[in-house]
Nucleic acid binder design. Structure first.
Lengths: 182, 182
DNA sequence: AGCCACTATATTGTATGCAAAATGTAATAT
DNA sequence: ATATTACATTTTGCATACAATATAGTGGCT
């Protein structure tokens, strides 16, 4: 027994459904404000209502769905106020993330991030929104991983997910990543 | 119709159960590492397993319970590493909280907090743990409310709840509230 | 036509039932 | 006596069934 056995990935239906539904929301298959028709989803996914509803409760708790008693779930819609509320919190978490990461990063990794950052600044200068956001996210992911704090990661991802509900995520602006980077 | 009607508090069983179980965990009726016997709880609370299980899923997602597939839920136990992981995140949120609060506090409110803070320092000096923690929490609550950011509040409370699972919450130390206060 | 009451339908909330998996126990073998 | 297997019991996961609430459709009325 000198080889580590494959960890058995035994999963439950509702867990699967949580991630599945999350993805559907992010992919826009379930759009903001839409009702979430339980029965239809059950048919689509080939499961019964019980696990699906368990998943809905979890997503409701995460803020991705609004759960109205007796009136079903709706995909959350973010008002401008909501966004203004979430951004500072994400900012604080990013700042901490950067702080923790700095203490652990090797020079090589740090250099890589600097390179990504430089490239991102370039895209920004050229107003190339799409690549800019892609790099931006990649940098955050890298820093977050380097911070090596699963709690932080979970909290951040949760908020990032909510923000993704907002169609326009313009001005995830410079001031913030400067701060996040140090 | 010149008087605002009482808002109808129409609640669902699983929502009720989420808060109920949370309280039971905080009160220590369900202790760390214990199995959570579904059937027994159902009998105690007079509900069926369906809403109870929905509540368990939510609490699992919050990190208060560990959900083991096919093996039930256990009240989460926090390792020292877990705590070390959570504290910096809470610290960051507290810092933000203080920052936001400062921008909104009236002089009177600020003075009140200073008074509380002074009193707390006194308790600390005299090594009166119990009153110290009580005041500490009161101050945090006040600042949190003053920050007027429900998202921040929710995130913070979630972490604070997890921390409450740890029996010894010694050294929620000075360095932190200095920072949180400015 | 527009508005209200009423009925029919659909959707949600909760309870129950059943199969699969895990836990506990007793009997057997070493 | 310890370890191991086989069996009985309990517990979990999921599906279904039933009751309560909301939605929508219809007809009558002003």
């Amino acid at each position: 027994m000198n080889q580590m056995a494959e960890p058995v990935v035994r999963t439950t239906l509702h867990d699967e459904l949580v991630t599945r539904l999350r993805d559907m929301i992010f992919a826009g298959e379930l759009k903001g404000g839409d009702r979430v028709p339980e029965q239809r989803l059950c048919d689509m996914l080939g499961v019964s209502r019980t696990p699906l509803r368990e998943a809905l409760k979890v997503l409701g708790n995460e803020g991705l769905l609004d759960l109205l008693p007796n009136r079903g779930a709706r995909v959350a819609v973010l008002s401008v106020d909501d966004i203004d509320e979430i951004f500072p919190v994400m900012g604080a978490l990013e700042a901490l993330s950067g702080e923790l990461a700095c203490a652990r990063l090797t020079d090589a990794e740090f250099a890589e991030i600097r390179a990504l950052h430089y490239q991102m600044a370039l895209h920004h200068m050229r107003r190339e929104l799409q690549p800019y956001f892609a790099l931006n996210q990649q940098i955050h992911e890298t820093i977050l991983r380097a911070a090596a704090n699963p709690t932080l990661e979970a909290q951040y991802r949760s908020l990032a997910g909510r923000i993704r509900l907002a169609r326009y995520r313009a001005n995830m602006s410079e001031a913030r990543w400067d701060k996040a980077m140090r």
